[in-house]
Design a protein around this nucleic acid. Structure first.
Lengths: 135, 135
DNA sequence: GTAACCCTTAAAGTTCACTTTAAGTCAAAT
DNA sequence: ATTTGACTTAAAGTGAACTTTAAGGGTTAC
């Protein structure tokens, strides 16, 4: 069992942020010692790691809370939780597409810088000519 | 030449947001008509599209402003601008890796839901047992 | 025993990127 | 002529996710 400081170090996440998640109802299973201090085990850390993964890919705090609330209601909500995960997976795919398109766009601009290729389509041109009147 | 409303429709971006970008110094080349109304041409729209692409992949407003400020100083800043684009490309790659890892994690959880495979490693287990004392 | 350091809570503050509001100008339509 | 609708600006408001502050309690080290 770990203190919040140890959990913070293992997760590389500020203790304040872990408390914030707890206050937001995202850590329903955390135990306390006799002094009321939070105690974390490996499963708690695994759940926080998964949450961090959700957060890093755009799931909101309230979205995570929704999963937690369903989970607290028991196995009867598994179908709904699966649907949420599938929807989130689809969101991840969308974000991958956005990144791929952006990567291509930036690559193309870099090619213009490196080869001065196709300059009339570049934003280079857009700025370089700004001293002349644009008509 | 387009009004802000036409630009807004072509870009699928609120006119207010375009004005906000202008106020933030992100649109240094926009012209005005005799009444002071903004006028956009295709190159302006292309620049805003590229900006939108930067924004969608995590570049901040001030990061974009930095590029604009360098561009306004002329061709002497091209090396620095190229460096910024290369750094942003590296950021995009990092984000792709985060998404890929998240996709794998979510897929694994979905497999647990679908096959009840490897349950002791799942967050399913973490929640389903929450009624029993965790020791 | 008292200082250092960990923990606690509640609440206020911060940052970012918009978004909305307020107050007003201008041109066309009725 | 006045209403409608698009535009203008400056400034205030919003929402999300922290982050910091304030005030205090418990355990360990000297």
């Amino acid at each position: 069992m770990f203190t919040i400081k140890e959990a913070s170090e293992k997760l590389n996440c500020p203790a304040h942020t872990i408390r914030f998640y707890d206050k937001e109802g995202l850590l329903p299973n955390i135990r306390r010692d006799d002094n009321g201090n939070r105690l974390f085990d490996e499963k708690d850390l695994d759940w926080i790691r998964l949450m961090t993964c959700f957060r890093a890919t755009g799931m909101s705090i309230s979205g995570i809370r929704e999963i937690v609330e369903l989970a607290k209601q028991g196995e009867g909500t598994i179908a709904r939780r699966r649907a949420i995960l599938e929807a989130h997976q689809a969101e991840i795919i969308k974000k991958q597409q956005v990144l791929n398109e952006a990567f291509e766009a930036v690559s193309q601009k870099l090619e213009v810088y490196n080869n001065n290729r196709n300059p009339e389509k570049s934003f280079l041109d857009y700025f370089e000519k700004s001293e002349e009147p644009k008509v």
